[in-house]
Simulated scan of single mutants.
Amino acid sequence: MKFGVAVYPGSNCDYDTYRVIRDILKEDVRLIDYRETDLSDLDCVVLPGGFSFGDYLRPGTLAAHTPLTGAVKEFADKGGFVIGICNGFQILTEAHLLPGALMPNIHGKFVCKHQYLRVENSDTPFTNQCEDGQVLKIPIAHHDGNYFVDEETLRKMEDNGQIILRYCDEFGNITEDANPNGSIRNIAGITNEKKNVFGLMPHPERAAESILGTEDGLYILKSIIEAYS
């Protein structure tokens, strides 16, 4: 399987993601410049975390209008796997590859900590190594992770199984106290209708080695490989 990791001006998790794919997952991977348009050699594109273009206007807005993101849209339309992590999730919503928007955290503060997540749908290319209801511990680090979508769209997403991860406590309870940013219904990760595009605020690449306190991010990353094979 061949991965590509996007590099926008201001990306700061690109090399972390690249290293995990190359050295831990042992998969073929290359970095993709934001001016590139040919993704024909790739099976999965990762839009990593960071502050693309300095988060000017809104996080992800300028990156959404680059040649690379245009190519990612075509790649996704053809069924290619796309995963957007943190700022990558913001880019996917700004590019309308995923519904909704990421707004500033309800408390107005940057939040950086380990976070519990409940798997809501294990029948996707990104969670097939999980079980429904499984609790993962994966770090978050964001200022604009407050996911919002209108009620009609949210109902359709719920019915279609597009809500993939929710913020929870260590026992899997979905509570207001367990919500770190004010996201509607504790949503932490979603897919598109076809379920080949996945956006999440937590950082699975920061949860891929025991020395970091958790390897739960590997459930997500290994799911992609399993889905491809």
Rank of each mutant, 00 (worst) to 15 (best):
F89A: 00
F89E: 00
F89P: 00
F89M: 00
Q90N: 07
Q90V: 11
Q90E: 09
Q90A: 06
I91S: 03
I91P: 03
L92N: 04
T93N: 02
T93M: 03
T93L: 04
T93S: 01
E94S: 07
E94D: 05
E94M: 08
E94A: 10
A95E: 02
H96V: 08
H96E: 14
H96P: 02
L97F: 13
L97S: 13
L97T: 14
L98V: 09
L98W: 06
L98I: 10
P99E: 12
P99T: 05
P99L: 11
P99F: 08
P99G: 10
P99W: 05
G100W: 04
G100F: 10
G100T: 06
A101T: 11
A101F: 13
A101R: 09
A101G: 01
L102R: 03
L102M: 14
M103W: 03
P104N: 06
N105M: 12
N105K: 12
I106D: 07
I106W: 03
I106E: 11
H107Y: 01
H107T: 05
H107P: 00
G108S: 02
K109C: 01
K109Q: 09
K109R: 14
F110D: 05
F110V: 12
F110A: 07
F110K: 09
V111G: 01
V111A: 01
V111C: 02
V111K: 03
C112A: 15
C112S: 15
C112I: 15
C112D: 15
C112K: 15
C112F: 15
H114E: 13
H114G: 14
Q115N: 05
Q115G: 06
Q115K: 08
Q115L: 06
Y116G: 03
L117S: 08
L117K: 10
L117W: 10
R118W: 00
R118S: 11
R118M: 04
